[in-house]
Amino acid sequence: EPLARRQLRDLLADVAWIAIAGETGDGASTVRTVNAVRPDLLFLDIRMPEGDGLEVLHQLDHHPHVIFTTAFDRYAVAAFEVQALDYLLKPFGGKRLGQALDRVRQQIGGNSETLPERFAAATGRRQPLRRLYVRVGGRIIPVPVEKILHCEARGDYVALHTADGCYVVNTSVEYLAERLSPESFVRIHRSRIVNLEAVQAFERHDDKRVRARLTNGTTVVASRAWSSALRDEAT
């Protein structure tokens, strides 16, 4: 999926010891590219056009280390049977990817800096997202982040609620919490992020929780922990 590959490229961009040698979108071109480029590491999906990931591995002449990235957990046993280094379930964020890359470094080496240190530094250097790309019909369109009122987890996807409508993207709340500007966006629940610029007020929801009332009239309920922290800050 183009959007999933874009997210992975973004996460890998600041990892100094990784250079992206190629990218493919189907099984046949993956076999050709891996055999030609001969990479050390392959991020491989399970479900692809023209052959699934497991079939691809059996067709390769060159055999790199493999990390599977997929939305389907039922293939995990088969993946480890072919000696995959890790199995990342979409959507995943920088922390989970860092754990997988730590296994890679143990196998193929690297410099003395640990993966947690490298990812912490990389996250600190990256600029906040300015836009997200969403699929609408047969098109992919950009959504400027300032148009987002709030984000809501929906299984393996996230719903971006804007004044113009709702868009569903293949990413995680964890990833958005890492990459959206903390000056404007706050994660008030493990599955919800709100744009502070769109909040009219925080009001009582029940004895333990508050809710954000947004400019379009929508309300978003915060977690008990976040509600308590807000009350402490306001008193």
Rank of each mutant, 00 (worst) to 15 (best):
R179V: 03
R130T: 14
V168S: 07
A19P: 00
V143E: 08
R190Y: 07
D164F: 06
E233D: 11
I148H: 02
A159T: 11
T123H: 09
A79H: 10
G27R: 03
V199S: 04
K90H: 04
R135V: 09
R38A: 13
W17P: 00
V168E: 14
R118M: 13
L60H: 04
V168M: 14
E50P: 00
D156Q: 10
V66D: 13
L115A: 02
R47W: 05
V143D: 05
R126Q: 14
I193P: 07
G94K: 02
Q107P: 03
G155S: 07
T215E: 13
L230Y: 12
H161K: 04
G98F: 06
L3R: 14
G165C: 09
R103Q: 14
N195C: 05
V194L: 07
A201D: 15
D232E: 15
P144R: 03
V199D: 10
L60K: 02
L11Q: 15
H58P: 00
R103L: 15
G25Q: 13
L44I: 09
R9H: 15
R231D: 05
R96C: 06
V56A: 02
V34G: 08
L44C: 07
L85Q: 04
Y167R: 02
E174L: 05
E50F: 04
L57A: 02
E203L: 12
H65I: 00
A121W: 09
P64T: 03
C151E: 11
R38G: 03
T235N: 13
D10S: 10
L176D: 09
N195S: 06
Y75P: 06
Q106T: 02
I141D: 12
P142G: 10
A153T: 12
I193E: 07
C151I: 09
T219D: 14
C166M: 14
R211W: 06
S191I: 10
I148P: 06
A13C: 08
T24P: 05
T162K: 00
P2F: 01
Y167L: 00
S172A: 09
D102R: 06
L230I: 11
L42F: 12
H65W: 11
A28T: 15
N216F: 10
T69A: 13
F80Y: 14
I46D: 05
V34I: 13
A159L: 12
A212P: 14
H150S: 07
F43V: 11
P182Q: 12
I18A: 03
L89R: 04
V31F: 07
T123L: 13
